[in-house]
């Protein structure tokens, strides 16, 4: 059974008060659930959130499915998101994505064999002047080459 930590519950209570309506707290609370649930939001946790927030579960589920930053499946500790929009593609983002995929033997939106990495293609991350680029969890990595990207990921996997 998924449950938020005490701090998590306190956070939800605070967010419910923070905006003009309770409903506005859905996005922040989904973020909280995602971070406490190992990087993704399970159906079970949506049910839990609905009860905790006292809001219809369909409302929460609509928001959950609408926004791409809420992960629908478990993801690795490193969520590698390579921008595959226009400028990045012009400058080799797809070749780079394929290189990462081959190196770590994983498909798009799939977990690597060791379960540590998920590779995703994402839309424009607003860093086109440093294309190609990727986001790993919350941080940007810019001006990449296939080799530098792989090195960054390897370093992170090894905790450097």
């Amino acid at each position: 059974m998924f449950k938020l930590s005490d701090e998590g519950v306190a956070y939800v209570k605070k967010e419910l008060e923070r905006y003009e309506t309770k409903r506005s707290a859905i996005i922040p609370c989904l973020y909280r659930v995602q971070s406490e649930n190992g990087g993704w939001v399970s159906p079970e946790s949506i049910n839990y959130l609905s009860e905790l927030m006292d809001l219809p579960v369909a409302w929460i589920n609509e928001v959950f499915h609408f926004y791409t930053m809420f992960n629908k499946e478990p993801v690795g500790k490193l969520h590698v998101q390579v921008c595959n929009n226009i400028t990045c593609c012009m400058l080799g983002a797809r070749e780079l994505t394929e290189h990462i995929s081959k190196t770590f033997e994983m498909g798009i939106d799939e977990l690597s064999k060791d379960g540590k990495i998920t590779l995703s293609k994402v839309e424009c991350l607003g860093s086109c002047d440093t294309a190609p680029m990727m986001q790993i969890n919350d941080s940007y990595h810019e001006n990449l080459t296939p080799e530098s990207a792989v090195k960054i990921i390897k370093d992170m996997v090894h905790g450097n």
């Binding site: 159906p43 949506i46 369909a58 609509e62 499915h65």
Partner: peptide, 14 residues
Amino acid sequence: GIFNRGDRSEVGTF
């Protein structure tokens, strides 16, 4: 609710 977006949108209950 209508879940997901674009032409993947699907009506349903949770």
